[in-house]
Design a protein around this nucleic acid. Structure first.
Lengths: 247, 247
DNA sequence: ATTATCGGAATGTGATCACAATTCGCATGC
DNA sequence: GCATGCGAATTGTGATCACATTCCGATAAT
């Protein structure tokens, strides 16, 4: 490599594009972007106080990860959830996340206390009904674990999956509330303290299946996803932004 | 009647950015981008005959998928393979691809003939030593199978992984040749014909482990890849910058 | 001959403009 | 009252310019 004794620490210059990406990702993960809602370059740029150029790249990055939906005419919107997509996302989560958790187990002892603290914050967000705080904390709980696996390949894949299902979960919580949320974090922490890899794997899997499976199905199986409002035969997937009102 | 597109097929307007992405992805998957080689906006734009703007978005998309490496100063280059990265990529492949193949098994009967045809083309590429054609055909063989799984979530994840390890494999083939390549495609085809899910899963897993594991380790454990620095050692291989001349 | 220093070239980033395509609003006509 | 047609506004895409930073090469000094 080229010897560069000047700065061993990477300066990590903060570029506007990365700030935009982080802002949109946070908005997606905390459910502040409603599925079906349009996302425009200039609109987002004005909202974030930047020029459309960094937003363009950020949107392109996120849409390439299927975190934003690019329609045939180029318009961009928050993806709407379909039964098929939901099942596949659930599938991918069950495939990847328990594996990552078990892989991270040896490194989790030292952050067990921090996980307990985050889980306490989650409980607090649940009782206060702060959905955004809950989703952010829940994301932090899971990814504290997954990050400890030290896998720089699988971890981004899991982040992609989360970016896709998170907006939908926000809709779910907005409809059924957060009181029905019951995670398996306590079991996971217990498994970590006992260095029980299989127990941790099972706890994560159950956390995914319970949290997403039951709630997701109850909502997706409810109203049929084809609520024709004006009889547009061109669009095979009518948007539900203005049709259904979450409460 | 302006808004009445009779054609049910989506127009799918071809934008320059997508062509650039496809071109770079193909170059990565076929090993025409040497690991460590710099990729510049204006250089790639001039090479492809487009303006730097679509290239900027394309590079951003690919770098977000870790298919291109963004250094601390913002410069972009084809990622270099490390032992750690390689092991993780191998790990991710074993985790995802056999699963996808088994999932696709019910839909593979009808394309079994096509798979045989592609595999024959692979053998032909191997005897002629056409590494680029081999890599393209091998990619096609695998993704014909994976695409049949109908999973629009896991499939992009696998594509991301391929984009990351493919350039390195090109280096491997360029060093040890393609004569040592021995895949498990025949076993996979056999398992498909017998509707043997477990056999197919095992064939894919062995194909990955044999192809990447043995070859990759032999090269990564061998000579360090930072041998030559100055002097431009006889660029007999078509480089990425000025290799392709449109006319 | 080796090292230090300086200047031009190259690179990524942000901003702005131009343009085709699409969408929305509103007036018009039946 | 309702569909229709037209024009303005919006949107994504591509191109170009400006600029800070960095890299490369040449020149000069020891």
């Amino acid at each position: 490599m080229n010897a560069k004794p000047d700065a061993p620490d990477l300066p990590a210059r903060v570029v506007t594009r990365d700030r935009v990406i982080a802002a949109v990702e946070d908005a997606l993960l905390t459910g502040q972007f409603v599925p079906g809602h349009a996302v425009t370059l200039r609109g987002l740029a004005a909202q974030l106080g930047v020029s459309p150029m960094p937003v363009r790249e950020a949107i392109r990055v996120l849409s390439s990860a299927n975190a934003l939906d690019v329609m045939a005419n180029g318009r961009i919107r928050v993806p709407t959830m379909t039964r098929r997509r939901f099942d596949e996302l659930l599938h991918a989560r069950v495939l990847l996340e328990p594996h990552l958790a078990a892989l991270a187990l040896p490194n989790l002892r030292e952050i067990a206390g921090e996980l307990v603290r985050i889980d306490d914050a989650i409980d607090e967000s649940l009782v206060t009904g702060d959905v955004i705080a809950y989703m952010r904390r829940n994301h932090e709980f899971h990814f504290r674990i997954y990050r400890a696996a030290g896998s720089e390949i699988i971890l981004p894949l899991v982040e992609h999956v989360w970016l896709q299902f998170a907006p939908f979960m926000r809709t779910v919580y907005g409809r059924v509330g957060t009181s029905v949320v019951e995670d398996r974090h306590k079991e996971a922490i217990e498994a970590i303290k006992h260095a029980d890899a299989e127990g941790l794997r099972l706890a994560i899997e159950r956390d995914i299946l319970d949290g997403m499976g039951l709630i997701g199905h109850s909502v997706l199986d409810g109203p049929p996803p084809q609520a024709i409002r004006r009889g547009k035969p061109a669009t095979k997937q009518p948007q539900t932004s203005a049709a259904r009102r979450p409460d």
